[in-house]
Design a binder for these strands. Structure first.
Lengths: 136, 136
DNA sequence: TCATTCTGTAATTATTTTTATTACAGTACA
DNA sequence: TGTACTGTAATAAAAATAATTACAGAATGA
């Protein structure tokens, strides 16, 4: 299943788009998503690192989109969440003495990265603006 | 990340293909995958339910492919693992008082099922025979 | 026929991953 | 200079996964 971080990130971005440039606090975001504010701040940290949002510290601070919603594409958001290669990464360690087990991870990884590319390509067809427009 | 059940199922199927019709015990499978035999038997139960494999009880028993490896396609294997719709299914319950939160799951689900279709279509390009041939 | 070697399956426990909570330093505003 | 935020670490709680134990039932073959 797509990491639950993806819906959180998308939710944040959608709310920020909805705020129309206004600064939004992590507490407000957490309230809408219904998760802990610290988790929100962690996701924002990632979104900021990837240039999707920016934040302002201190009183009256919060986050806002760092670029136009039409310049943020959902495939890129998805990709921003992977450490290396999200989808597969079999952490399982098959028996190296088995001729199949020995090489299966290598083949699985190829399979996964192809499949994941197809998924990302699909997500990339949509911008945050497209997605957010569904709420209007 | 794709459920870790997918690699397990694929591993099982690949080993059964490799066995060339011979009956393979869940202990042997578990040994190659390096997981608990009971987990293997559970996956086999699912694979059997979907007609990919069949099993023989009792002494000398085990599992074997129920159809030709070229008639088993990886997209179908993937699909056999989902309860309803694997990928997304935001279990998160956003705040219903928030105009965005209220409807986001509905939009996420659409997004997910499109993306998942793209992924499954990609996997469907490959049969078990194609996959297994990489090991030779 | 009966000991043996399997499967099927439930119940329980252990482990890992995910999420929430607490805490507090630092920043900016008024 | 108090207040309302962010940033971040550390810890605890909860949930999801996986392993283990256990045992009934099926098929085989000595």
């Amino acid at each position: 299943m797509i990491s639950s971080r993806f819906p959180i990130s998308l939710h944040i971005l959608t709310l920020l788009d909805d705020a129309n440039g206004a600064v939004v606090s992590s507490d407000y975001l957490a309230g809408s998503i219904n998760i802990n504010p610290v988790l929100v701040r962690k996701e924002i940290m990632n979104l900021r690192k990837h240039g999707f949002v920016d934040s302002k510290e201190g009183k009256g601070g919060g986050s806002f989109l760092a670029k136009s919603a039409s310049d943020i594409n959902l495939g890129d958001v998805y990709k921003s969440l992977r450490n290396q290669n999200i989808l597969g990464q079999s952490k399982n360690e098959p028996n190296p003495k088995c001729p199949i087990g020995k090489q299966i991870n290598q083949h699985l990884n190829t399979l996964y990265s192809d499949a994941e590319n197809a998924l990302v390509d699909n997500l990339s067809k949509q911008s945050l603006a497209d997605f957010a427009s569904k709420f209007k």
